[in-house]
Nucleic acid binder design. Structure first.
Lengths: 133, 133
DNA sequence: GTAAACCTGCGTGTGACTAACAGGTCAAGG
DNA sequence: CCTTGACCTGTTAGTCACACGCAGGTTTAC
């Protein structure tokens, strides 16, 4: 009952993304036989909402596709969902630490550089600021 | 005086990456006219070290290319370097906050789900765990 | 002489889109 | 009836920093 633009406005997801989800099979809209336009119904609306909800929890689109497929076969996706989340939490803990380290290195460098003059390249040094790290 | 593999072993950078840097112009090795192999000298070694040092401080390869080029023209890259770093620090602060938020959402979800049973898909719900968020 | 370990360029894949292209469709207004 | 503008279609390229694999040539050691 809705076109791409309708669904986009209704959901706040760009029409580009809606078409992208259709292309990779996350959404399976019908087609208007007169002009080939995609047509979405209430099921698609809630699917789309589900996709964004899952994404906001850190799920990748591939994982969402898995979940959707499992669910479509009549199986409960919940165990898989719990496992993915546990795994993602571990990964994220790692990434967080790396980013914190990076942030510290960057801030330390900026302070360290505050007292250093700019230097001209001299053939064996590109930028002594960076090389001083 | 060194081939790709020599430089790779010497620096701990994979030979794939060394060739990649050559391809995008970060390294400009000479060529052995007999067989077309790349040959690297001391300058390339320090360039490569500079690249990795800059990367570890959060610079992108494109930025490194800019810096190298500026430096190659005889200008001091230092002002640009300071500016990029300041900018990167701001960006990273943002990213860190987002990741922290995500981590909280994920951990909260896992706790929240601990008391919930697995459910079967019933046509209008895919996974009540995710949809309960 | 042959096997292992190198080298070459090039093309594909990663994630989740965004942007752009060329062309078709549709509703409203003059 | 015609135009304008906003939509639609599929496809392709771009993002980042590589990893991996291909087919084929080279070098080194035994």
């Amino acid at each position: 009952m809705m076109t791409v633009a309708d669904l986009s406005k209704h959901s706040g997801v760009t029409s580009h993304a809606v078409r992208y989800y259709s292309r990779i099979g996350l959404l399976k809209p019908g087609r208007n036989p007169e002009n080939g336009y995609r047509i979405f119904d209430r099921t698609d609306i809630s699917r789309l909402r589900f996709i964004r909800q899952a994404q906001s929890l850190g799920f990748t689109l591939e994982e969402v596709a898995d979940i959707l497929e499992e669910s479509g076969k009549g199986n409960s996706p919940c165990p898989k969902v719990r496992e993915i989340l546990r795994h993602r939490i571990e990964e994220n803990r790692h990434k967080l630490e790396e980013l914190k380290n990076l942030q510290e290195r960057m801030e330390h460098a900026l302070v360290h550089w505050a007292g250093m003059p700019d230097g001209m390249p001299d053939g064996h040094s590109v930028c002594h600021l960076i090389e001083s790290g």
